[in-house]
Design a protein around this nucleic acid. Sequence first.
RNA 1: UGGGGCGUCGACAAGCGGUAAGUCACAUGGUUUUGGUCCAUGCAUUCGGGGGUUCGAAUCCUCCCGCCCCAGCCA
Length: 695
Amino acid sequence: MTTGAAKPHNFIRQIIDDDLKNGRNGGRVHTRFPPEPNGYLHIGHAKSICLNFGIAEDYKGLCNLRFDDTNPTKEEDEYVKSIVEDVRWLGFDWEDRLLYASDYFGQLCDYAERLIMDGKAYVCDLSADEIREYRGTLTEPGKESPYRDRSVDENLDLFRRMRRGEFADGEKVLRAKIDMASSNLNLRDPVMYRILHARHHRTGDTWCIYPMYDWAHGLEDSIEGITHSICTLEFEDHRPLYDWFLEQLGVHHPRQIEFARLNLSYTVMSKRKLLELVEKKLVDGWDDPRMPTISGLRRRGYTPESIRNFADRIGVAKRDSMVDIALLEHCIREDLNLRAPRVMGVLRPLKVVIENYPEDQVEWLDAVNNPEDPASGVRKVPFSRELYIEQEDFREDPPKKYYRLTPGREVRLRYAYFITCREVIKNPGTGEITELRCTYDPATRGGDSPDNRRVKATLHWVSRAHAVRAEVRLYDRLFTVENPLAGGGDYLAQLNPESLTILKECMLEPSLEDPRSPIGYQFERQGYFTPDSRYSRPGSLVFNQTVSLKDTWARIEQKEKQEPGKMITTDSSGTEVASGAHEPLKPEISFDDFAKIDLRVGMVLEAEPVEGAKKLIRLLVDVGEAKPRQIFAGIRSAYPDPGVLVGRPVAVVANLAPRKMSFGLSEAMVLSGGSDGRLTVVTFDGDVRPGDTIT
RNA sequence: UGGGGCGUCGACAAGCGGUAAGUCACAUGGUUUUGGUCCAUGCAUUCGGGGGUUCGAAUCCUCCCGCCCCAGCCA
């Protein structure tokens, strides 16, 4: 049933609604997904699959799975198998309608003979090169083939002999007789059949002529009674030809509708390029977890539900677009968050010894399986004297806002105890931290402090004696740039060398010895992981990271590194700065922060009072950049006639977040100050230029 | 100087002459034994640009600009 969530609204459904209203096709809706079995399906195909099968479902119609196998030189059975598996895995059902274009080869020939007999098709002896020459160019019309006016009888005879195998590859073709002067190149007597003495994956050697896409596709649709033939934008130019063939034959005429194919950031989406990655061994096959193929996503741990949800959210339209891969990641996180069992696993282990915990004691503590799903219950995890925690959960010299374990600090071990770090043991040679000596508070068993003592961090951990070793593979985007194809350079040069990280010594809680969750696990505080279908074995586990958890700390840390100056923005407006100059600085601004201020010379270009504000002046100041900045400053009392400021150099604080004011954007501050209650802006004598740094 | 399409927030995308939905991303607060989840708030005075029609235009007309596709015996 399709009740509940509103059906997606897009232009294709609108067309179908109209057709239904107008009584076309007797109220039937019948679509098809027509892949060529020459490669593996990718997420772009998933969009099309969800569209076609989704529409059929919602309109109580049908959707066929049809292989468009008209070119035996490129197609293989292996691909047929993978495609069938992928579409089924996505959750769609074609019942008994698994169809092949090759099943219609006989019928297609009959139709071709009809066109020949009607004088609308002819056998042409021109070579491929000649045909290209005769076709003309985008701006010049083509020339008619010298074979264009052969008699019907001769054409029929020649065509039958082509079919019988009397000619070599490329010797002759059958062409539609349309219009060599058409502005649409597709209509300049397109080829319908070519001679190919090649073995077909299904029909074997039965045929030596094979139909071209334009000739075959519309008829395949027609034969199957398709009502809406949905394809991608590049076929828009082909629609007149699609229509022409069906029109000439007077057969059932489906409506072709084109939509924009999917592009995803940080990856490529063409079968040819994906094939290249596979053939050059840049990835581990079509199902490499970094590939945007359906099989790659499956191996990576994506669920069919998440992919279908993604397809719904990206919508369907005609404009070229590039979908942010973050949306795909959001979809899988959303699904797995609700359903994936939680578990503890340490990826980069750091040994911890709890000095005051009895040597041979083991406690089995309760751990919640999934806080999002109370029905999932609890499991037991063993706690003992020697543990592993994550290396990145300890910092000897913690940065600001780091609130995990540090020397002397107390944190919680999830579901276990509060521990305090007492000593850091290092390798004397390398200085590498090899072990932490900690103590625990027995009163905090389970992770609650009886005295309501607070800790800022909760860490995951694994008991050393009970740990299950595993290999974990971390993945990052396949390419380093959003659109590897942009710029016209070699897209392979944009491959991300760090797209795969293999961690060999991971330590997992013992329940993972035999991983049975069909949708993988959440390793708490890390991400979602699933056993690799190719390499994982009992006793030698290999996990793939599906997607990481969102990591606020990583963002904070990066931000601190990149723009430390931002800390001083707080909420000071231009107004506050003027008076701020002789008021004490806010305590959270340290002396170090002060050194980060970007103080520059600015030249006042314009200055005017701000309507509707008593204190403000609007300044336009050249600070040595391409564009002058607009600044609102609360110095009107000192400058009742702001015009006197024009042409004067002033001190500008340039590294502030722009502040949105009701009058416009304030893009910097002007320093001002004074004594005896008299306010003036800081200005300069001598030779200064806009943009000069003030030290 | 050919033809076919397309331009609405950083990324998708509704809107169909009555005064800019939603999602992702981002930001800020709250809750939290996952720096996860969840919740709240903010985020396009404006729809590629200019003219015009209209009481009223993202929606209609017009001119311009930009981007994509087409010269396979591939699909």
